[in-house]
Design a protein around this nucleic acid. Sequence first.
DNA 1: ATATAGCACTTGACTTTGTAAAGCACTATG
DNA 2: CATAGTGCTTTACAAAGTCAAGTGCTATAT
Lengths: 120, 120
Amino acid sequence: MTTETHGSLCPVHRAIGILQEKWVLHIIRSLLAADKGFNELSRSVGGCNPATLAQRLDHLERLGLISKTVTSVMPPRSHYALTASGRELQGVIDEIDRWARANLPAEDAADLTHLDPARV
Amino acid sequence: MTTETHGSLCPVHRAIGILQEKWVLHIIRSLLAADKGFNELSRSVGGCNPATLAQRLDHLERLGLISKTVTSVMPPRSHYALTASGRELQGVIDEIDRWARANLPAEDAADLTHLDPARV
DNA sequence: ATATAGCACTTGACTTTGTAAAGCACTATG
DNA sequence: CATAGTGCTTTACAAAGTCAAGTGCTATAT
């Protein structure tokens, strides 16, 4: 098999590569709701540490999905927003939302992977 | 700590938690196209090593998204297929596909993160 | 006036996750 | 009877993510 069917030549494959990175979908979802500053976004996303968040934001900016604006350098103030491309991910989030409501109704013992042992 | 707004009580948040695991979307996409055996799936997904794949399949099975059937134990033969829940992710994949075609047209130097050095 | 909290991050040590390579038990094919 | 294929598992290692702390500065509270 010479010509590989799943390489980075396939847009879907590349998209999955982008969206599957940890925290990315959470970040997009949060910014779809409203633009935010770094710490505000961090709180909204919940659980992502600043190092990872910074890295992810940088990556997403380089991909053209979000835009960063520095409003003030010394009382530091940044502003993160989705670009047009980023905003188009609304459809993806909506579909995940739809699927989730239809298939993950209650917070049962469905997923056992990251449950707090104290609750099991 | 009061009532957290983004915990596992939110279905979307949980869904993202599931789908963002490395290789999961690739696996789903591959199985949406057709049921497969372990190695065939491995090849189709492309790049996921057996240890991770096995772990992911186990997890997805436990979540009720895929079903595993062992056809023969000793000339080993397994069969992986999506469940009804899993198949409903078609919509999510379709949306990613739509987004990708509209926003990641050519395979430019847009994403530099995981490019095969040999191709750059 | 001074202490405290907040912003946007960075740094370094550590843990978790993922990967590569090899191997196992076995069959079917050349 | 050697080779390739099935479905994995094991071990050792690399990469990714996390925790805790810190930096430099301001704005508000005390």
